[in-house]
């Protein structure tokens, strides 16, 4: 999915844009392993609410995080039109449940603006900044923050 221009121009970042709970987000394409349709996960006992369960991804057991719940947004409709963005986060493979993938963006580093102060603390901690594209505000997620920080100390 990388465009030829990517490697030659280190200033340009490619971002996968998607939509969930009515908001636009994006993550760095380098952390995206694949995008796949929804399949019913097996529930995990005693898991936090944003952990939907686990699915089989070519033989590996991968947990699915409901991104809307993780960010404290309105719950999204439970439908098989939802998609899973499989991302590599700190040596783990994790699926992010979102409503739809919308775009692949090429953005110069200068195109990423700091997160406005208005955002709530929970949301702001998980954002690296925002990108404005075609009058849409797209939130750049800090995927490392999606996993709890305590996890790193414990691991």
């Amino acid at each position: 999915m990388r465009s030829p221009g990517y490697a030659s121009d280190p200033d340009i970042r490619e971002l996968v844009a998607f939509r969930t709970a009515g908001q636009d987000f994006c993550i760095d394409i380098l952390s995206v392993r694949e995008i796949r349709g929804w399949s019913r996960p097996a529930l995990l006992p005693h898991a936090p609410a944003f952990v939907q369960g686990v699915i089989n991804l070519r033989g590996a057991v991968v947990p699915i995080l409901d991104l809307a719940k993780r960010l404290g947004l309105e719950p999204i409709e439970d439908t098989d039109r939802n998609v899973i963005i499989v991302a590599a986060i700190q040596n783990r493979t994790v699926g992010l449940l979102v409503e739809a993938v919308t775009d692949i963006l090429s953005v110069p580093a200068s195109g990423v603006q700091p997160t406005p102060d208005l955002a709530s603390e929970t949301t702001r901690n998980m954002l690296r900044g925002v990108v404005v594209q075609d009058s849409r505000l797209i939130r750049l997620l800090d995927v490392g923050q999606l996993l709890p920080q305590a996890d790193e100390a414990a691991a």
């Binding site: 399949s39 097996a42 006992p45 898991a47 686990v54 089989n56 590996a60 057991v61 783990r92 493979t93």
Partner: peptide
């Protein structure tokens, strides 16, 4: 037997996971 530790972590009461004939995961 598929470990859960690699991508998730240990869960009390759960030894591991497996993949069933229909491709779904069972604990």
């Amino acid at each position: 037997i598929k470990g859960l530790e690699a991508n998730y972590g240990q869960i009390p009461g759960i030894a591991a996971a497996t993949v069933l004939g229909d491709g779904s995961v069972a604990l």
